[in-house]
Design a protein around this nucleic acid. Structure first.
Length: 331
DNA sequence: CATGGGACCCAG
DNA sequence: CTGGGTCC
């Protein structure tokens, strides 16, 4: 029988790391492989610009443009920018949008022309093209740099080009045994800036609440493990920033689903912890469509056919009942 | 044609 | 295996 159920009573420490508008960030950076390509081709680009181009590699004008555009990279920091693929039809499709551009209402999956209308000063940069297709290898390689840093502290699972799950259970247990947060004299600002779900965020001093949560000696073992995990993730995110210039956001929780949910709650360049005690409150009212796997037709079917709107509503249905509707695994 | 394409999972 | 769904 297929089983797709997590273990009961789970105290793993799982992080989900999500790069902020990753394709845009990659433009800001100069990595060695793209430099090599650029210096190879730069001379020819200038030679071919405005002419008929017979070289099969350079024949695609989009590629020439993208090579030229990449030279602007450093100056694009802090400016409204989007990465587009295929510029020939209505300016190409946006696949990443900088936070500066988002302020103007520029959205992913707009066309380049559309983005120019709402944000005339936006910089549109094309992804490289190889064999007539968008070539994402530059971004894939940049993602690998991040994975190599994250894997210093735990096992990594690449979830996509710009997302990684990290199992920090072992590292958190070790930290709890050797050097628990409650014994630390000072706690770095990066850690205190974490968001912890379920903490009363009264206007007075959220910082002090977080600091207290991290250092309380009477916390449950689960909470202490998550606190250690959040420490480690804060360190890792700093190392990623120092070594790659990339910022990312992260969620820290007891399983992948919750870590993924949390990483998207505070962006960019922030991290969010989901303590065990906050889970039921969080899920009871969470719209089902926000959960991974339920954003499409399955989620719609849950709403329309079963009247399930929140994760809490789902509890009224037995596993067997759901399997009747959707099959053994999906159910 | 007009969000594009690839990776992965599942049901039948 | 194919065809459909989902994600980025």
């Amino acid at each position: 029988m297929p089983v797709a159920r997590p273990e009961l009573s789970d105290s793993r420490v799982i992080a989900h790391v999500d790069m902020d508008c990753f394709y845009v960030q990659v433009l800001w950076k100069t990595d060695s492989s793209s430099l090599k390509v650029r210096s190879d081709v730069r001379r020819q680009v200038y030679r071919f610009k405005g002419m008929k181009c017979n070289d099969p590699i350079l024949a695609n004008w989009s590629y020439c443009e993208s090579v030229v555009e990449q030279r602007k990279q450093q100056s694009l920091r802090g400016q409204p920018t989007a990465v587009v693929q295929y510029n020939s039809w209505q300016g190409g499709g946006l696949i990443a949008v900088s936070y500066e551009a988002r302020k103007f209402g520029v959205k992913r999956s707009m066309r380049g022309d559309e983005a120019k209308q709402v944000c005339p000063e936006i910089h549109l940069v094309q992804v490289p093209v190889a064999r007539g297709k968008a070539d994402l290898n530059t971004y894939r390689n940049a993602g690998s740099e991040v994975v190599s840093i994250l894997s210093r502290r735990g096992r990594c699972e690449r979830a996509s080009i710009d997302e990684v799950y990290l199992d920090l259970t072992i590292a958190a247990e070790a930290m709890l045994a050797d050097n628990p947060p409650e014994c630390l004299e000072t706690i770095s600002e990066d850690v205190v800036q974490s968001h912890v779900l379920g903490l009363e965020e009264v206007g007075s001093d959220a910082r002090e609440n977080v600091r207290h949560w991290f250092t309380r000696s009477d916390a449950s073992r689960r909470d202490k493990l998550l606190a250690c995990g959040a420490f480690i993730v804060a360190e890792l995110r700093l190392q990623v920033l120092e070594e790659t210039e990339f910022t990312c956001s992260a969620g820290i929780a007891h399983n992948k689903m919750l870590a993924k949910l949390a990483s998207g709650m505070n962006k960019p360049a922030q991290q969010t912890v989901v303590p065990f005690s906050s889970i039921s409150k969080l899920l009871r009212t969470l719209p089902i469509k926000k959960m991974k796997q339920l954003g499409g037709k399955l989620g719609t079917s849950l709403q329309i056919d079963l009247g399930v709107n929140t994760v809490g509503d789902l509890l009224q249905f037995s596993e067997e009942k759901l399997q009747e509707y959707y099959g053994v695994n999906t159910g």
